[in-house]
Write a protein that binds this DNA or RNA. Sequence first.
DNA 1: GGATAATTTGACCGATTGGTAAACATTACA
DNA 2: TGTAATGTTTACCAATCGGTCAAATTATCC
Lengths: 214, 214
Amino acid sequence: MAIPRAARTQRRTRIQEEKEEIILEAALDVFSVSGFRGSTIDQIAEVAGMSKPNLLYYFRTKEAMHRALIDRVLFTWLEPLRAFDANGDPESEIRSYIRRKLEMARDFPRESRLFANEMLQGAPHVEDELRGPLKALVDEKAEVIRTWARNGKIAKCDPYHLIFSIWSTTQHYADFDVQVRAVLGPEHSGEGRFEDAARYLEQLFVDGLRIRHS
Amino acid sequence: MAIPRAARTQRRTRIQEEKEEIILEAALDVFSVSGFRGSTIDQIAEVAGMSKPNLLYYFRTKEAMHRALIDRVLFTWLEPLRAFDANGDPESEIRSYIRRKLEMARDFPRESRLFANEMLQGAPHVEDELRGPLKALVDEKAEVIRTWARNGKIAKCDPYHLIFSIWSTTQHYADFDVQVRAVLGPEHSGEGRFEDAARYLEQLFVDGLRIRHS
DNA sequence: GGATAATTTGACCGATTGGTAAACATTACA
DNA sequence: TGTAATGTTTACCAATCGGTCAAATTATCC
């Protein structure tokens, strides 16, 4: 008889690694659109191209799949903020942070939407991570920004709301993609869309945060 | 025998008005958190304090409830943008648009989340409205902004992305409320939160869009 | 090649889903 | 006050939900 995956202690099989990858990929497709409650195991199984019991052989519950997915996304999602360098030039650090976040919205829109879905539902599965590691990281970087402002390198501003505004403006292009596309129309829905956004956002934030000598 | 509501042609009863209001209120509670697929009629019925068949007497399907809700929200949601005055002072128009949007995020977070949920799912129920009335309104206001920029009243910028950035930054405080709360911590989660946000955003946008003489 | 472990499947379970039918209760109005 | 229209409830339906089980199949390793 097969031993349930979670109870196993030995190393993972080649098949396990492959199948789990396929499943998480399919789960990302489904969860990112319909959220946790709105998604069904059958949907995911169909996208993954395997039977439902087979899926449940690798992840014993729907929650286990969702958790595995969230854990993975949460880590990579914060990488741009981790790369935010206290010793770099303020203006170029902010500029490249915006660019990195925008690239993630372009290259990983499903991950962005998965996270957004979780937030909309009140973060029932990740509230601890928000209050713990996330808050700690943001606190650290906010202090960096605050120091820059104190030293006159950028305009005085609330560092937390600055971070929020970078998050929201960049992720908007992933989460509200339909709306952006509908408003811009077919003529501006190509790849150049992200270049336009990057140019605009860099102007907004860099000019908005530059010290005024007037 | 009772005639299904949708087939009726006569004017609405007092009871109808009251009950439909109660139902939509409950539906907003539920849909805004769990999205369309993730919400159940039973949940809504429980929140509304009435039996499921009674609910279905007023709205014959789950979709009908959702549609009624979306239609109502969509209209009021665009009011701040409609109020955007082409003849006003650019700086104060942008300033008060931000403030109005932020007030809506504070006072109607459920409406914001309902809309966000719909966007995340690819706007299956409102794509026509986005491409039609919404695009038309945005096009009109974008032209106003473009004229301001051409006449040197504000910095040159892409008016569409400007509007997107105001939408995203303000709605963020409703849609990602959990995250904002978690990051700011209990000490900054009071009412002053929105004042801080307003101050920061006005600074960001006004300075970011002001003409530079350097 | 055979034994053993890992994987896959079809049949199935109880609970929940969106929605219906019809009996029953209440209201509005002449 | 009677009665017809409106409103509410109980009982129920087929479909789908998350998940289990045992049998069948495949991969692994000596």
